[in-house]
Each structure stands twice: as structure tokens, then as C-alpha cells.
Amino acid sequence: MKKRLLPPVFKMVGIAIILLSLIILFLARALNIVFIRDIISHDKELFSQIGRSVFFTGFLFILLAREKVEDEFADFCRLTAFRITFVTGLIAVILNSIPILNNKNIDNSYHFLLIECIFYIIFFYATKKGLIRYEK
């Protein structure tokens, strides 16, 4: 079956996009860049929405990029990471719905999505490096 994935270079493109968006946001806050701060203050909501979209586009590129050598083990790592991320996401939603444990930080769907993306990347590389084993 033909895999519909992006070329491996998109992994680096994704990382570059994420770093660039982080650097811009960091510089805007830390160095008080007038031009960027003007844009932020002019339409803060629009700017943050664009920032988030760019940020998640970077993550999407990383998630959908194929490995240099795309084989069944890469598929296995990908599926394991998706499975664990999905289950942890469900657990997080369940725990978040319990009033005592309600965490305001993951009320926002963007925060939740960000955590899920980071979890996916961690689990993917953990599986690849053998930190998560196949257990029958």
C-alpha cells in the first residue's frame, strides 16, 4: 500500500517553522521589538491565531514527514506513538472532567493539542530508540 506521507525534508521544515515562530514570539516579548509589538498590540487575537496556526503547521509537517528509510518499523513506531497519544489524550479529558482535578491549563484546546503533539513526538522517538518495547 502506498503511504501518503510528506518527503523527509518536511521534518526539518517543520522544526524550522516551530523554532522561527518561537523565536519571533520570544524576541517580541524579551527584546521589546517595536515593529512586532505594534502588530501584536494592533490585533492581538488575530496575531495569536496566526502564530498558533503556523506553530501547529510545523508540528503537522513533523508528524506527516516520512523517515529517511521508511520501513515497517517506522510504521510500528508511528502507530505505537499514535495509540499511546490517543489513550493519554482520552485519560487527560476524563481526568479534566472530574471537578476536583479540573486543570485550567488544558481547558484551552490549543494547549491540549500542543501537549498531544509533544507526547506524540516523545513516544515516537522513545519507541524508535527501544525505550518502549513490544510486549506480547
Binding site: V69, F73, K128
Partner: peptide
């Protein structure tokens, strides 16, 4: 036709 990582994981 696989990655070195695959061989390492199978061997281990």
C-alpha cells in the same frame, strides 16, 4: 531494505 534502527530493535 530497512533502517539500521530496525535491525538494532529486532536484535535486542
Amino acid at each position: 531494505g530497512v533502517s539500521r534502527q530496525s535491525i538494532i530493535s529486532i536484535e535486542k
